[in-house]
Nucleic acid binder design. Structure first.
Lengths: 370, 370
DNA sequence: GAGACTGGCGTAAGCGCTTACTGGAAATGT
DNA sequence: ACATTTCCAGTAAGCGCTTACGCCAGTCTC
């Protein structure tokens, strides 16, 4: 029995112990489902717990057991290209990131972990501090694309297990990503070979995003290999936002440029903006210009025309990232040092209408879950 | 100076102190930006910190300072009506909830708080346990709509500050919500008076969602007051998912029912499904049937026709919820007991095309940010 | 029925921080 | 020059848990 005074505030394990007439050790054992305490004792404790409305303190538990059961997830706060307010919410809505987080969360929960999410603004001068604060609150970190420089990542990884998403292949830590290269090559083939387009373009995402670079390169090189032409360069530099798609198309049209026959976008949101801007000028998609996306976010199939895109196994990417991180956390060895792993998940081309394919006329109910 | 042995693992404040030749108290003071330590000392400490890659442990800090600087956010994991896979991702994508969380996060960050997010499945039999675990990891809880019964909320609120979102007016704890009633009445007026529709319907969201109930009641009563007819009942019971919108319309058409002239949906996602299903049967929106949503999610304006809906200040709702919670956490008094507050934020009717209004033909750049 | 187990439970030592208290040195006042 | 104040920095006492250890029944063995 312990003689500590009853706290006036929230009940602690001592209060429970006193009320149940046992020691705090027994309460702890009941709390953790050990089978030591015999039923009678267990019941007394359980009763005291519920009478007091006792909630064990996570911080104390974490401190003592050296496990917080929390994973940190950091993503970039996106402010897309400003296009006069039209897409301001859109660029804020991080559909892709949210889906990934959902994937992480679902598997994390199965292991008793919760997610500590935090967005960062790259320009923040206190970035290292913010990341450190977050790191201190969890057992491991999952970093979305483009939140920290490779050097920054390496440095934080000295102290806490880190997994990156959609990072570069040879990064300093374990990385999980979709197989952008293969599917973008497939996309190029589809557009050039199946549809016969010769003059195409790729609207890029953030210039410093490894995944974006891979997408652009794979697409362009395959188009060239097939004898097509692929426009790139500053005029085609977007930032993953719908707004950037709008502005690029408007800019091109304003300059009187001849648009390519097909535009492949770095992601679905950009494609959304492109289609919008094209429609604004009376251009038909895919009749005048074919447009494709990347990610296959839910809205892609509700657009008119339905968006041809690449399906990424978004939630699976998140799930995999957690599993990798979890094994790093569990492994006592803080560093597996040698071979840093790069996990690549398969992606798939989803042909819908915006590339020029005919609409699928079967009723949705009969359609394959594809 | 402290004689504790150097830990082989992650460095602690003791390691930093030893390396800098000071006491742990001084390190702590530097860490917390106290102005006590003089520059020379401070620099030594800072140097040691960066050399060791020291990251202060959040759990220890929380335990000691009795503040975790973490707020828990719990939302319901939604599995929408199954419609053969067509909308399965959609129903998982919780657009609305994610936006709210973004709002919470942004203001939380300003106060040094991070978000612990966790989705729960209502059917879970261990729900109380899950919520308790989460509660133990944070200083306060924000509960989205429909994650816990009022009794459950009241019980957990005994122990930790709680704020609910879109809860019922007379709930057991502080609540933040949009002014659904006013805008739905306005919607009814617009549809009946401006467009002259007489036969309308409301597709409901979760039957047990207070906000849904308010929306439905306000709409129906205003329609009636204006001499119109508002269809409701089991045939019009959805669940906030696009899939439910699809199924309801398909079901009605299959039964040969005469569709109303206008359908107001509980939220944008439902409207998305309704429009989809209507198009599937060759029905024109708004020509044959007008459709409206609620929330004004980003995709609403990219639909064809653009969706007429009610704009909720989504991020502001989240922000407000955090502010309220934060003041509860800061107030030493665990219970302000008496008047539980209900914060209502203004909403606004956004007239676009799906109600029958003419498309806005001004170029987007010139359009008001409205 | 004495010795060796065994299972249930209490004691106490931390986990890595924050912070009240305190002592000594430096700065200030007269 | 001495008394007084001010400033820094160290000591140590927790914060609320988990868990190694050990004690004391009650069981088992032969």
């Amino acid at each position: 029995m312990d003689a500590r005074p009853t706290s006036g505030a929230t009940p602690t394990i001592y209060d429970v112990a006193r009320r149940a007439g046992v020691s705090i050790a027994s309460v702890s054992r009941v709390l953790n489902g050990r089978d030591n305490p015999r039923p009678a004792t267990r019941d007394r404790v359980l009763k005291a717990i519920s009478e007091l409305g006792f909630v064990p303190d996570g911080a104390a538990r974490a401190l003592s057991s050296r496990l917080k059961q929390v994973v940190g997830v950091v993503f970039r706060r996106v402010y897309g290209t400003d296009d006069g307010g039209m897409f301001e919410d859109e660029s804020e809505s991080l559909l892709f990131g949210d889906q990934i987080n959902r994937g992480i969360e679902i598997v994390a929960q199965r292991r008793g972990y919760d997610l500590l999410v935090s967005s960062v603004n790259i320009d923040e001068h206190t970035l290292p501090n913010r990341i450190m604060t977050i790191a201190g609150k969890c057992d491991g970190l999952i970093l979305h694309d483009q939140v920290l420089s490779p050097a920054g990542i390496a440095s934080i990884a000295r102290t806490v297990p880190v997994v990156t998403l959609a990072g570069a292949e040879g990064g300093p830590v374990a990385n999980v990503r979709g197989d952008s290269a293969t599917s973008m090559r497939e996309m190029a083939r589809h557009l050039v070979q199946d549809h016969g387009y010769r003059r195409l373009a790729y609207i890029a995402g953030h210039a410093d995003s490894p995944d974006n670079i891979v997408r652009g390169r794979s697409f362009a090189s395959e188009v060239h290999a097939l004898g097509g032409e692929c426009l790139t360069g500053p005029a085609w530099q977007g930032d993953y936002s719908a707004g950037s798609g709008v502005q690029i198309v408007r800019g091109l049209i304003a300059l009187g440029a001849t648009l390519p026959r097909a535009i492949a976008c770095a992601n679905d949101q950009t494609a959304l903006g492109v289609i919008y801007a094209l429609a604004e000028h009376g251009l038909d998609v895919p009749g005048d210009v074919a447009v494709t996306g990347f990610d296959d976010l839910p809205f892609a199939r509700h657009l008119r025309p339905q968006l041809t895109t690449v399906r990424q196994p978004i939630q699976e990417i998140g799930a995999k990232a957690f599993e990798v991180l979890h094994s790093m956390i569990s492994a006592d060895a803080p560093q597996d040092s040698d071979a840093v792993q790069d996990f690549v998940l398969p992606t798939r081309l989803i042909r819908r209408e915006s590339c020029g394919c005919p609409p699928d006329s079967r009723p949705a109910v009969w359609r394959q879950i594809s």
